[in-house]
Nucleic acid binder design. Structure first.
Length: 420
DNA sequence: TCTGGGGTCCTAGGACCC
DNA sequence: TCTGGGGTCCTAGGACCC
């Protein structure tokens, strides 16, 4: 059996842990740049705040109902996520962290254990240890565990744990599940399936395997098999990313290359840091820039360039210099740029390193410099030591006017909150 | 005025090889 | 005039997820 445990309204719940006066009240969290709504408490959902809606369109609704609004604080959410995952791991060691607020659990070896009983203990313990409410779905496949999880959330009398462990329950659950709510069925497929009179997950499983294969390829076929109880989506165990991206929309529109270069240098440095953190290197660096696609009355430009590195690297100075080189060749004067990003790919483990006969770079020297830099930043705070190209202007910085303190990770924030 | 960021997998088509 | 069959690798784009 598989489990899917996931945090309820995660970002909103994180904010409420540290402001308990907001319990029972409507809370929303906005994306970077205070752009869109990306998390809502149950109360905010009930008021009709849609997911993904731009904040400026909701101003009136927010004011009228005194909804508490937060900028996103990923340092805080990341730390709270670690706390939740640590608690879960103590119950079920075989787990795959699927996203910041979700994990798949594998119950191999739990054959003689009452899963419902254990599940109830697990969700109770997570709330007690972290203050974050969670729900757990259990079923023979990952896709069915996702379905079970939805039921655990939706109906109070499950007490946040729902198990699909018989044909009877499977049929009942699938008949009550809209096809668009199935893991792996997005907007496009929902539309297409509706055209073929498939509206529930059950309708979908009643079609032939060949038909599904023809219409939706192997991916659709896997979903079909999983819904019928045959597991075929593997559990990812390594955790190492295959590509790493750092990108941001700018707080103001930028027209000259200098502030964009500073931003790109920072994104590249961040990618290099993430590579070192997972002990990997990248052999390609891609940079993209574009104008604001919503400003339809303005000239639009999108471009991207990928450079191959002669030797895989996770050295900030090297990744930055390739990124800037790519930026230089795609940047065009005369546009208002809204967003840029750096993606590193072709990722391989740090060791063994495939070298290049004609490589002239003193790699061990730079490696030591990176180690020293990471160490200093770990002790004295992020970005205390950085590469000169990252600059200090930060004209490209994002807007986050409603940012909560980093209650759990920043000593100054902790002291401020304590004093209050 | 104001519209996020970070991932995965699959497929089709082009360029190239023998 | 007549023009095969079997591969690989790469990229772009589309679908999906959170």
């Amino acid at each position: 059996m598989y489990g899917l445990i996931d945090c309820n309204n995660f970002y909103a719940s994180c904010e409420r842990v540290f402001q308990p006066s907001l319990n029972g009240k409507a809370v929303v969290v906005l994306s970077n740049n205070d752009g869109c709504v990306i998390a809502r408490s149950a109360e905010a959902k009930a008021l009709g705040v849609p997911m993904g809606e731009p904040a400026f369109k909701l101003k009136e609704l927010i004011d009228r109902n005194q909804i508490a609004v937060f900028s996103s604080n990923y340092v805080l959410y990341g730390d709270m996520s670690n706390r939740v995952m640590t608690t879960v791991r103590a119950f079920v060691p075989q787990m795959e962290i699927y996203s910041i607020d979700e994990a798949f659990l594998s119950f191999d070896g739990f054959e003689n254990i009452d899963l419902k009983e254990m599940g109830l203990q697990l969700v109770k313990t997570v709330v007690r240890n972290t203050g974050i409410p969670v729900s757990l779905g259990i079923a023979p496949t990952k896709t069915l565990a996702k379905v079970a999880n939805k039921f655990a959330k939706k109906y109070k009398n499950y007490h946040n744990v729902c198990i699909i462990d018989s044909e009877d329950k499977r049929e009942k659950a699938l008949k009550m599940t809209d096809i668009g709510d199935v893991w792996g069925i997005g907007r496009q497929y929902k539309k297409k399936l509706a055209y073929h009179s498939i509206n529930t997950a059950w309708d979908f499983t009643m079609r032939s395997k060949n038909w599904v294969r023809q219409q939706m390829g192997v991916v659709g076929e896997r979903t079909w098999l999983e819904l019928r109880g045959t597991p075929c989506i593997e559990t990812e165990t390594t955790g190492a990313k295959k590509s790493i991206c750092t990108s941001r929309s700018f707080g103001e529109r930028l027209t000259s290359i200098e502030p964009i270069a500073e931003a790109v240098a920072n994104f590249a440095a961040s990618c290099a840091e993430k590579l070192r953190a997972q002990r990997t290197m990248a052999a390609s660096v891609m940079v993209f820039i574009h104008t604001n696609p919503f400003a339809t009355n303005q000239p639009q430009y999108y471009n991207q360039m990928t450079l191959q590195l002669p030797v895989a690297s996770n050295d900030s100075t090297e990744i930055i210099s390739y990124a800037l080189q790519a930026l230089n060749s795609i940047f065009k004067q005369g546009y208002e740029y809204k967003k840029a990003g750096v993606v590193v790919g072709n990722i391989s483990p740090e060791r063994p390193l495939q070298t290049n006969l004609f490589d002239t770079r003193n790699r061990s020297k730079y490696h030591k410099a990176m180690q020293a830099m990471d160490k200093l930043n770990a002790s004295f705070g992020r970005q205390k030591v950085k590469i000169a190209a990252q600059g200090f202007d930060r004209k490209w910085k994002l807007k986050n006017e409603k940012l909560s303190p980093c209650y759990t990770t920043n000593i100054n924030d902790i002291l401020t909150v304590k004093a209050e």
